[in-house]
Structure formats: structure tokens, C-alpha cells
Computed example of a mutant assay.
Amino acid sequence: MVAIAEQREQVENHQQNIGSQIDICQVSHVFDTPKGKLPVLNQVNLTVQAGEFVALLGPSGCGKSTLLRLVAGLEPATQGTLLQDDELIVRPDPSRIVVFQDPTLFPWRTVWDNVALGLQARGLLRRDRHRVDDALNRVGLGEFAQSYPHQLSGGMAQRVAFARALVNDPSLLILDEPLGKLDSLTRLAMQTELVDLWRKNGFSALLVTHDVEEALFLAQRVVVFSERPARIKAEIRVDLPYPRHRGDPRIAALRREALAHLGLDDSW
């Protein structure tokens, strides 16, 4: 029991040392379209604590992925501020890595070379080659370093995408439906692997998903958004220990609560 307690303390300390705090303050965003201005976010206020795992739920097209792009620094918000550890987010940074639904691997590069791409682009590969092997080992793909993307299953390809993110030692992992294209069994297995990666590596995580059960299985807090322009309707704290069990009646109760906020509870 002492060893287990010490291991848990080490994980918690690792999270405190690595994860970034993200503050989203009064953020609104508008797209210019041929038909005029299209508001997509409406006065969003949200804080992701250092080392916290937060999931975003909401109707399709409401603006969740747009919020992720703003947090990543891929474009500026129309209104409001976004902060990482009290510093303004004004551009992309290796400390904030996005993992998309599609792993977007280069087919002509080996698994190792795909994971190394970020270090190579930053001129760090010669010095930090060992980090590529370490990242592949962390996702269980060390033996596939010299394989090519066409030789991988969908789940393995997505694990390569996670390794490509982890090689940069990010303090925030931005997850835009990263498991959305996987078959159901692979998706369940990858959910468990993603939780393990988060707990072992200590980064903060911000996830967009349309899967209510996935959000409750992974996250410590689930934020529910309204229709576009998105505003926060509710926050659900998932005060359940890890590892979680999908059959836990408390998850079922929280799922009904989340679906109620989404207007879908009549079917459950």
C-alpha cells in the first residue's frame, strides 16, 4: 500500500511540474463569410488547471474546435484573451500540441521519421534523437519504428500521432476528436491508453468529443456548450478515481446529466 501511495504521489507531483494552466477570458469569435459575419463563440470563460483533463461537449458545429484552434494559437480571437501560465497566447508553440482526428502521417516516412518531424523542424533532432525512441516506447510502438504508415492499423497510426506530440514534451495536449475515426473496440482501448499517457506524463489536456461516455471516462471535468455561437451551459465534475469502470453506475448518472444539458435525456 505504501508503494502504491508513493507512486500516486509521484504521478501527482509530475503533473504539477509539467502541465500548463490555460485561462480563456471573455473570448468571442466571429468568422467573415460571403454571407456576412458568423458568430461562433460567445463570451467563453474557462480555466484548465495545471495537469487537469477537461473535455468539451456540445452540438456539432457549435464552435468547440474553433476554441481549440484559438488555444493552440493558430488564429487570434476576435475578442478576449487566452493565457498559458499567465502569458498571452499569440502564436503556435511546441508546448501546446494538437492531435487531430486524422493522424496525418507522411506515407513516405517511417514511423520513427514521422515522430521525429517536430524535432527536425526545430533543429533539435541531432541532439535529442533519444526522445523519438522514448516517445515511441511510451505509446508501445518501439518495435515498429522502421515500419511505414500503410503497415499500421488505425489505432497504431493514431498512437504514432500521440508519440509525435509527446516527443515535444508538451505541457498542454489539445485533442480534437483524436479517436473519432477508429472502430468501436479500438476506440475503447485507445481511451484507456490516452488516460495512461496523461497520468504518466503529467500534461494538461483539453479534449473535444461528441461521445458523452468518452468524455466522462477520460476527463476530470466536462464542459457542455450551447448551440452556435457557443457559450458554456454547464460544467460537470467527474469526481471518480482512475482507472474508471465503464459500468460504474455513477458514470451512468453523470451521462444522463450531460445528455439533459444537451437536450437528449428523453432517450435514456
Results as ranks from 00 to 15, higher is better:
G154E: 11
D134H: 14
L119A: 05
S95D: 10
A77N: 06
I97A: 12
Q84G: 00
E75W: 00
F203Y: 12
D133P: 00
D86S: 14
R164V: 05
F203Q: 09
R91D: 13
S171C: 14
V208I: 12
D196V: 04
R129E: 13
R131L: 13
A77T: 04
V99S: 03
V98Q: 04
D134Q: 14
D85F: 14
G180Y: 05
E177H: 12
I174Q: 06
A145P: 00
V98Y: 00
S184P: 11
E193S: 02
I97W: 05
L179Q: 04
K200W: 07
L88P: 07
A163F: 01
L173V: 14
E193G: 00
V208A: 07
G118H: 04
P170H: 09
D102M: 13
E87P: 00
L83W: 11
P149H: 07
D128E: 15
F100M: 11
S147Q: 13
L88Q: 03
L70P: 01
D133M: 07
F162K: 02
P92E: 02
A163P: 02
L166G: 05
P92N: 01
L206Y: 04
D176Q: 08
L136M: 06
R127D: 15
L175Y: 02
D86K: 14
L175C: 05
S204V: 08
D86Y: 12
F106D: 09
N137S: 12
D134N: 07
A189G: 13
S204N: 08
F144N: 04
F162R: 03
P92A: 00
V208E: 09
L88H: 10
A205P: 01
F106V: 06
F203V: 10
L82T: 01
N168R: 11
P94N: 09
T81P: 01
D102P: 09
V99N: 06
A205V: 09
E193C: 01
L185Q: 15
S204E: 10
P149S: 10
D128T: 07
T192Y: 13
A205W: 03
T209Q: 08
N137Q: 12
F100Y: 10
D113R: 10
N201H: 15
E177I: 13
E75K: 03
D85T: 12
L124D: 13
L152C: 08
L179S: 07
T81C: 08
F203D: 08
F144D: 03
S95K: 15
K200T: 15
E177V: 12
M156T: 06
R91H: 10
I89R: 00
G154L: 09
F106I: 03
P170F: 08
H150P: 01
P94K: 05
R127G: 11
R187A: 11
G73A: 09
T186R: 13
L188E: 15
V208K: 05
G118D: 01
E177T: 14
V160F: 04
V90T: 15
A77E: 02
S171N: 13
V195A: 11
T104Y: 14
L206T: 05
N168C: 08
E177Q: 14
L207V: 10
V111G: 04
L124K: 12
I89G: 00
F162P: 02
